[in-house]
Design a protein around this nucleic acid. Structure first.
Length: 267
DNA sequence: AAATGACACAACCGCACCTTC
DNA sequence: TGAAGGTGCGGTTGTGTCATT
């Protein structure tokens, strides 16, 4: 719907915040909370729009914000999460305590994007699959090309968190599986093709205790439950799997995105 | 020392989603 | 059921700082 931006009102200040404004905003939020951002500036006596106040609080003044440079671990986590989630900065920020979506977005654009490009350009350095990385770079959620799997069991979502409760009581009619698979850099050259995925992978991956990602799947035996592929537009992403295994002395890792679909049928 | 370019980060803008009426 | 308002998100821009020429 058409609506005028909240900051269009004349007399509202824009631009960098002064320490005095910060003080007023912090004092007001600490005393009254921020139930209504639109009303807050007037109540607090600030010549700002509510949106600007919210942004300043969320990105800068919040007491739980971790300031300072990103650690190598945090940067790696951002790269990893961006590969899985795409440009969903708030979702990435939710997994990095003390960091804001804006901060992560800035770090990505000014630093990590270049680092990733450099890494991918380096010979003999496949890292997380090149195709996946290039797609992630375009901004959309990373989706690797569907691959033909030696599909051992049949996978059915078993949501483990309330986040997915909307589908738990309904039969899943069809699913789509996307898979990023990779091999440690130095092993790539000696391998002619990606390894077959065998049963142990699924049992390992799907039962692993991965704290950052929901493991929301289990194998089932009724092949008739599954139809491939499913249009992403119709699909509801239900979770991720991430695992690695050592086979014949070589280490393989996998990121798996599983979507369950037929939402019209489910609802 | 001044000019220029690259980089980092804060803040703004527009849109979409959600809630309320 | 749809309009209106509030909020959050992601893209983009503006500006300060530092390095290089």
């Amino acid at each position: 719907m058409a609506r005028s931006p909240c900051c269009d009102k004349m007399g509202l200040k824009k631009g960098p915040w002064t320490p005095e404004e910060d003080k007023i905003l912090v004092a007001h939020v600490q005393k009254h909370g921020h139930g209504n951002w639109r009303a807050l500036p007037k109540q607090a006596g600030l010549l700002r729009c509510g949106k600007s106040c919210r942004l300043r609080w969320v990105n800068y003044l919040r007491p739980d914000i971790k300031r300072g440079n990103f650690s190598r671990e945090e940067e790696d986590a951002i790269i990893d999460l961006h590969e899985k989630l795409g440009n969903r900065w708030s979702a990435i920020a939710a997994r990095l305590p003390g960091r804001t979506d804006n901060e992560i977005k800035n770090v990505w654009h000014t630093n990590l994007k270049k680092r990733l490009k450099k890494k991918l350009a380096t010979p003999n350095s496949k890292g997380h699959s090149t195709a996946a990385a290039s797609k992630c770079d375009s901004g959309s959620a990373c989706q690797s090309e569907p691959v033909n799997l030696n599909f051992p069991g049949k996978i059915s979502p078993q949501p483990s968190s309330s986040e997915f409760s909307s589908i738990t009581d309904s039969p899943i009619r069809n699913m789509e599986i996307h898979m990023n698979t990779g091999i440690k850099d130095e092993q790539m050259d000696s391998l002619e093709s990606f390894p077959e995925i065998h049963e142990s992978f699924w049992s390992d991956a799907l039962s692993s205790d991965n704290s950052s990602m929901p493991t929301a799947f289990h194998t089932v035996n009724d092949e008739s439950q599954l139809q491939f592929p499913l249009s992403p537009a119709d699909a509801l992403e239900v979770g991720y799997g991430h695992s690695s295994r050592i086979d014949d002395g070589m280490e393989f890792w996998y990121d798996v995105f599983i979507r369950a679909g037929g939402l019209q049928e489910l609802n």
